[in-house]
C-alpha cells in the first residue's frame, strides 16, 4: 500500500471502483448471491479461503501461522428490497423485504441481478401496486440501489451503508493479506441480517472463533450528539446485548495508540447487527465497531474518512494481541 497523499488518492480510487461494483450487485436480504460473487472476485487475489454457510453468508479466511487465537470480523452486506410474488405477461406483484417501502421507492429504478431495470406503477395516492414490465418471475428479487455519489468527502446513495462497510472490510482484507499473520483472521459478509437477524450468529458458529468483532453502520438519528461523522463508535450496550467490556476497553486503548479515537455508543432501544452474537456457542468476547451514517429521504450518507478510520481500526485490531488474556 502507498502512504501519504498518493495513498489517500489510491484509497479513494479503490473505494470508488469497488462501490461501483457493489452497487451493481443486488443483495436483497436472503438473496445475496450476486454480491457474494462480487466480493469473492474482489478478494480472489488474496489467497484467502472462501466458504458459504447454509444461509448464504460469505466467510473469508486468511490463514495465519497458528500461534495466535483466531479472530473474526463480521459485517452486514444485504439490503431491503422487493420480492416478486406473482407475475403476469406485462406486470408483476411484489412483497417488500426488510422494511422496503414502495411509497418511498415509487420513482426509483428497480434492479435485478442480471442488470434488467424495472419500475413501479404508481397510483394517484402515491401507493405502488405492481411493477411494470415483462420478464419478471416469482422468486426474483429487485434492489433499489442504483449507484453511489461522492461529494465533499461523503459517500451517498440508496442502500449504500452496508456496501460502504463491506467495501471497507474488503480493503482491510487486502491490506492484511499482504502481511504475515500469527493467527487465522476470519471475515464474514452476512446476507440475511435485514430480514432474519441471525446470519452473523450462524457464520460465527461455522467459523468457531471465540473473539467476534462486528463491523456495522450506526445511525446518527436518535443517538446522542457525540455520534456523528468524524468518529467511529464502540458499542457498549444495545437492547439485548452487553458487549464484553474488557475487549471493548482493550480495543479502545489499542486504537488510541494508533491515533484512532472512538466514541462509546449505547443503544438501549435497538436490536443491532451484532445482537445475535451472544447466542453463538463458542463466543467468549464480542465487540462492535461502528461507522456513523445519516439518512434523508432514503439517501444514506457516510464519510469517506470515517471509512478510512474503520479500515485502519480493523487492520490494527487484527494485528494486535486483542483476543489474548481477555475474558
Amino acid at each position: 500500500m502507498i502512504s501519504g497523499l498518493s495513498g489517500m488518492i489510491e484509497r479513494r480510487t479503490y473505494m470508488t471502483e469497488i462501490l461501483k461494483k457493489l452497487c451493481r450487485a443486488p443483495a436483497v436480504s436472503g438473496f445475496g448471491d450476486a454480491m457474494r460473487r462480487t466480493i469473492e472476485s474482489e478478494l480472489s487475489c488474496t489467497g484467502a479461503k472462501f466458504d458459504t454457510d447454509p444461509l448464504g453468508d460469505l466467510i473469508v479466511t486468511l490463514p495465519g501461522d497458528g500461534k495466535g487465537e483466531r479472530v473474526m470480523f463480521l459485517c452486514p452486506a444485504d439490503e431491503p428490497g422487493y420480492y416478486i410474488t406473482s407475475a403476469e405477461p406485462a406486470r408483476a406483484y411484489f412483497a417488500p423485504i426488510s422494511g422496503a417501502d414502495p411509497k418511498n421507492d415509487l420513482k426509483s429504478d428497480l434492479h435485478r441481478a442480471d442488470g434488467s431495470v424495472f419500475r413501479f406503477s404508481g397510483n394517484e395516492d402515491g401507493s405502488a401496486e405492481y411493477i411494470d414490465g415483462s420478464g419478471l418471475s416469482p422468486g426474483d428479487t429487485l434492489s433499489v440501489c442504483s449507484g453511489h455519489e461522492e461529494h465533499d468527502g461523503m459517500i451517498s446513495g440508496v442502500n449504500v451503508k452496508n456496501r460502504v462497510v463491506a467495501a471497507t472490510m474488503c480493503r482491510a482484507i487486502l491490506r492484511l493479506s499482504e502481511a504475515k499473520r500469527n493467527r487465522d483472521l476470519v471475515f464474514a459478509f452476512c446476507f440475511s441480517e435485514e430480514k432474519m437477524h441471525r446470519g452473523a450468529g450462524c457464520a460465527s458458529e461455522m467459523a468457531g472463533a471465540r473473539t467476534l468483532i462486528a463491523i456495522a453502520p450506526a445511525p446518527i438519528a436518535g443517538s446522542d450528539s457525540r455520534i456523528s461523522a468524524g468518529n467511529i463508535t464502540l458499542l457498549i450496550k444495545d437492547k439485548t446485548t452487553m458487549y464484553t467490556s474488557e475487549l471493548t476497553d482493550k480495543i479502545e486503548k489499542e486504537l488510541k495508540t494508533a491515533g484512532i479515537s472512538t466514541v462509546p455508543e449505547i443503544r438501549s432501544d435497538d436490536i443491532t447487527f451484532s445482537s445475535s452474537l451472544p447466542l453463538v456457542s463458542c463466543a467468549e468476547r464480542i465487540a462492535s465497531l461502528r461507522i456513523p451514517f445519516d439518512a434523508d429521504n432514503g439517501i444514506q450518507r457516510l464519510s469517506l474518512s470515517d471509512s478510512k478510520m474503520l479500515e485502519d481500526a480493523i487492520v490494527k485490531i487484527a494485528g494486535s494481541d486483542i483476543s489474548e488474556n481477555t475474558t
Binding site: 454457510d53 447454509p54 444461509l55 453468508d57 410474488t85 406473482s86 416469482p138 432474519m196 450468529g201
Partner: peptide, 20 residues
C-alpha cells in the same frame, strides 16, 4: 409456488439454528 408473502412457521427457527 406460494404466490404471496404471508405467515411463518417453524422454519424460521430451524434455519437459524447453529451454523445455519
Amino acid at each position: 409456488i406460494k404466490k404471496y408473502k404471508s405467515g411463518g412457521n417453524d422454519s424460521s427457527h430451524i434455519q437459524k439454528s447453529g451454523s445455519g
